[in-house]
């Protein structure tokens, strides 16, 4: 049994929700399983919908593997994209991401 890691989701109002999860699956799945608001994930992780968009806190952003071209292209055209935008279904949870903090956007579109 692996040690659990903590992922913090911050909503647009600044309210934080920290969840404890096994270091497997994705950030999106951690949100869905723990019923965290602000992440819709309609396509179930297929990198089709961009409704699991998050802003990764800057100190963590550089630590993540590079996005693949599909993710980059989806994110590039999102209305509320920022330099630290990622799709949470593409961020694999590993032990090194213990403490990761992401913020959900005002709206998933």
């Amino acid at each position: 049994m692996t040690d659990k890691i903590q992922i913090t989701f911050r909503d647009p109002a600044g309210q934080e929700n920290t969840v404890s999860v096994e270091p497997r699956g994705t950030v999106m799945e951690a949100a869905v399983m723990n019923n965290v608001g602000g992440i819709i994930a309609e396509c179930g992780g297929g990198c089709s919908c961009a409704t699991c968009h998050v802003y990764v806190d800057p100190e963590w952003f550089a630590a993540l593997p590079e996005p693949d071209p599909t993710e980059s292209e989806l994110v590039e055209f999102l209305e509320d994209a920022r330099p630290c935008s990622r799709l949470s279904c593409q961020i694999q949870l590993v032990p090194e991401l213990d403490g990761l903090t992401v913020q959900t956007p005002d709206q998933q579109n």
């Binding site: 990198c47 961009a50 292209e73 989806l74 590039e76 055209f77 999102l78 579109n109």
Partner: peptide, 10 residues
């Protein structure tokens, strides 16, 4: 062409 999809949606 995911960029066209997102741009088109907008």
């Amino acid at each position: 062409s995911p960029g066209d999809f997102i741009a088109g949606k907008r």
